[in-house]
Design a protein around this nucleic acid. Structure first.
Length: 342
DNA sequence: GAAACGTGGCT
DNA sequence: TAGCCAAGTTT
């Protein structure tokens, strides 16, 4: 049965495979960058970033030699910024300790920061032809449906089963095509909702389809609703420069730059909160804009005020703000400044 | 093992 | 609309 499933999948893939920049002539560095960029991110979203990244950092050495500031700037907008910092750190390790060559084994790859089991399997199979499985969210969806696996996503029980199933199916010498076929199928036909079972190469082997419960796999534990938190930010001007500061090296938006801000519990109290924190003169009537955005673990709302006063940070001309990596909200403030101050 | 970590697209 | 979920890893 395993061979039939793998054959059906490989035949489908041979006819349907998409052309991707790192897929046709898999070069290890390119595969690594692409796989990290694709973590928790749709291919359509990361593709423009990938092209820009490869143009600026075409190989391990250019990446290792770059500044973290520039690395983060190229990553800005993609999210999960520790991926960029880990890529940068790993490149420096590879250049310094491995003669600029990426390890070829799953175990060796997993020693590098930012490379877990999935990414190690993907690089080993796609770039080095190793017979390693690579189970991502798409593969989990396909496998839980084909084998009607009922443990919930994220549980160790399901993790063991999907990896065991993937490894059992893995056709010798064709891990790269098999892994990518599984992911392509999950990203396309075997979608979370409204899967196109009529055209699925695995329909005849799919237990969930036979039971009519495709959309009930994989089983997911209920998520916590995102808490909402409110912040008030200030724009301090000195000539044509504004004050920004760098965030801590750990946690949310680590090492990115932001406009000085304080958390407020009631947006209407923004002015009082700002005064208490810094005792500058705050002018809420000159508010530039109100922004709102969902982060992975809370919903942030940012109100922007102009203020006078002195705070720790760096004065940066508005025209140079683009070289300072920021999260989405702060970038929107920076973009709005041209009009507001111009 | 659970929680933290960004952002965008789709329903 | 509000919620779901995505080519996962780290702490």
């Amino acid at each position: 049965m395993s061979k039939k499933i793998a054959d059906a999948l490989l035949s489908w893939y041979a006819a349907r495979r998409r052309s991707l920049p790192w897929r046709d002539q898999p070069e290890p560095y390119a595969v690594w960058v692409a796989e990290v960029m694709a973590q928790q991110t749709r291919l359509e979203s990361m593709l423009p970033y990938y092209e820009r990244w490869m143009a600026r950092f075409p190989n391990m050495q250019t990446l290792a030699a770059a500044s973290e500031q520039e690395v983060l700037t190229l990553w800005e907008g993609l999210g999960y910024y520790s991926r960029a910092r880990n890529l940068h750190r790993a490149a420096q390790i590879v250049v310094r300790e491995y003669g600029s060559w990426l390890p070829e084994s799953v175990a060796g790859l997993m020693k590098l920061p930012g490379i877990g089991r999935y990414t190690a399997g993907a690089i080993a199979s796609l770039a080095f032809g190793v017979d390693a499985a690579a189970v991502d969210g798409n593969a989990v969806r396909v496998l839980t449906r084909v084998f009607n696996l009922e443990d919930s996503v994220g549980s160790s029980a399901l993790g063991k089963q999907v990896w065991a199933r993937a490894e059992a199916l893995l056709p010798e010498g064709q891990a790269a095509d098999f892994n990518q076929a599984l992911m392509d199928l999950g990203a396309g036909l075997c979608a979370p909702r409204n899967p196109d079972c009529a055209h699925c190469p695995l329909r005849d082997y799919c237990e969930a389809y036979a039971l009519g419960i495709q959309e009930q796999r994989p089983v997911r534990a209920a998520r916590q609703a995102l808490p909402q938190r409110d912040f008030a930010a200030v724009v301090l001007e000195r000539g044509d420069a504004v004050l920004i500061r760098q965030r801590p090296s750990e946690g949310l938006l680590a090492n990115l730059w932001e406009f000085p801000n304080v958390e407020i519990h009631n947006p209407k109290r923004g002015k009082a909160e700002l005064r208490r924190e810094w005792s500058p003169e705050v002018e809420p009537r000159k508010r530039i804009q109100v922004l709102e955005h969902s982060y992975s673990h809370f919903r942030a709302r940012l109100q922007v005020y102009r203020a006078q006063g002195v705070l720790p940070g760096e004065w940066v001309p508005v025209a140079e703000l683009e070289r300072y990596p920021m999260g989405k909200l702060d970038r929107q403030i920076a973009e709005g400044l041209r009009d507001a101050l111009g």
